[in-house]
Design a protein around this nucleic acid. Structure first.
Length: 431
RNA sequence: UCCGCGUUAGCUCAAUGGUAGAGCAUCCGGCUGUUAACCGGAGGGUUGCAGGUUCGAGUCCUGCACGCGGAGCCA
């Protein structure tokens, strides 16, 4: 007998097979009983009919509870009435473990209850769909860069100093060397690697100890950060739009079933094709003014501002040339106008906000040193970073894309907490 | 950190200041094609915690804890 997964049922119609899985729910009409099972690859309906199977097998239905594990042997039939389109006419059934009082019952639950039971919530079909899309996005990211000759370079997670500031770091003791911090970006290390390999990307978890409490924030989130030697801001934007187009189109192609389950309007995602609009910071301000928003030059855009700007477009929009004062020390200034940094943010459509932040980096030793001092950063900690400008410095650019916000946008979720298996938020670090 | 809302059965929620209730889940019974099946019955409560007002508080007041939504900051 073939031991198979539910997703393979189509190849076994009319044959006897073995499945292993868990009870999602069951129904009975007396002498005919139904069990809906899941095995991780899908769901399938089992039918037990009294009189055609041994009484002992028929009665195992009574023992099985929601989420009990078991093996089933039976005949595969095509059946349009069954969820998933197939059903198993049960011949025999072997109980592995009986679950007692599974807490997530087939009715609605509140978010606090579900988050407390996140380890069990992952078993539900909605979470399956979301995390499969996440998997597909990560796969697309790796394929995109690998196919373009980028080298994956893992940045350290324990770091000696801040990349961007000092107020938002998780701190830990590091033997006799004092404090260490959880990384908030792999970028500085990606720059070093780009000087070694030309085109690189880092991909890993990053940490922000900010007390942000919104639907777009986690304290631990995943970021992919490409960095390219000899690339300027325009090259950076070219890469970013090709990258995002590839991710979205790959998910539509390979995970249409999951998007449909989530009731995602796929036609909106189909529009995510190059070229994306590129607007100057000043144009973005004009858009805000036209929409009656009073915006002061020199500020960064808030959540509402981002939504208003991105609503003008059906595609992700790139805003470039931000005022240098609101951007990080390592960003290169526009040589034609020192007020601006050669920075770009990409805002996702439908109000999902910033998914990419990037820039051309400062490649001049003296200027970078000056910026480090202006920001009151400890020069010793950045000596290695300054070395990159001492030995064959070149123009280079890169960006970071937040995985969770990208998943939330593509799945059209209310909150990023569902985009990662075990979210870490300001008021939650369990389970 | 600030602003707003909330906390009642295992879960989701009701309950003019006057005897705490429903649906689901659980248990018992019925039903040969169910789709979060359905029908009948049963058990299940220190109303988040600590005070206060009142003849009487789930309900009004104060404080605390926890959660949710939003702001700031960011990806």
């Amino acid at each position: 007998m073939h031991k198979i997964y539910i997703e393979e049922l189509n190849n076994y119609i009319g044959q006897e097979i073995e499945l292993s899985g868990w009870v999602t729910h069951k129904r009975s009409s007396g002498k005919i009983r139904f069990i809906v099972m899941r095995d991780g690859s899908g769901i399938c309906q089992l039918v037990l009919v009294k009189n055609i199977i041994p009484e002992e097998v028929f009665n195992k239905y009574d023992e099985l509870t929601q989420e009990s594990s078991f093996k089933v042997y039976g005949l595969v039939k095509k059946e349009d009435r069954a969820p998933g389109g197939f059903e198993i006419e049960v011949k025999n059934l072997e109980i592995i473990h009986i679950a007692k009082d599974y807490p997530i019952t087939p009715k609605e639950h509140g978010i606090e209850f579900l988050m407390d039971h996140r380890h069990l919530w992952l078993r539900s079909s909605r979470q399956h769909a979301i995390l499969r899309v996440r998997h597909e996005i990560i796969q697309a990211i790796r394929n995109f860069f690998n196919n373009k000759g980028f080298i994956l370079v893992d940045a350290p997670i324990l770091t000696p100093a801040a990349c961007e500031g000092t107020t938002t770091l998780f701190e830990t003791e590091y033997f006799d060397l004092g404090k260490a911090y959880l990384t908030q970006s792999g970028q500085l290390y990606a720059e070093a690697a780009a000087m070694a390999f030309g085109k690189v990307y880092t991909f890993g978890p990053t940490f922000r100890a900010e007390k942000s409490k919104t639907r777009r924030h986690l304290t631990e989130f995943w970021m992919v950060e490409p960095e390219v030697a000899f690339a300027d801001l325009n090259d950076d934007m070219d890469l970013a739009e090709e990258f995002v187009e590839y991710i979205v189109q790959t998910v539509i192609k390979n995970r249409r079933k999951e998007l449909e389950f989530l009731e995602r309007d796929i036609s909106k995602l189909e529009k995510v094709k190059r070229p994306f609009p590129r607007i100057h910071y000043e144009e973005a301000i004009e858009i805000l003014k036209r929409n009656g928003i009073n915006f002061e030059w020199g500020n960064d855009f808030g959540g509402t501002d981002e939504t208003v700007i991105s609503e003008q477009f059906e595609k992700p929009v790139m805003i470039h040339h931000y005022p240098a004062q609101v951007k990080a020390f390592y960003m290169k200034r526009d040589p034609n106008d020192e007020r601006y940094a050669l920075a770009v943010d990409m805002l996702a459509p439908e109000g999902y906000g910033e998914i990419i932040g990037g820039s051309q980096r400062e490649d001049d030793y003296e200027i970078l040193l000056k910026r480090i001092e202006e920001h009151n950063l400890p020069r010793e900690a950045f000596e290695w970073y300054l070395d990159l400008r001492r030995y064959g410095s070149v123009p280079h650019s890169g960006f970071g894309l937040g995985i969770e916000r990208t998943v939330a946008w593509i799945c059209k979720l209310e909150h990023v907490r569902e985009t990662i298996p075990f979210p870490r938020m300001i008021y939650r670090n369990t389970p």
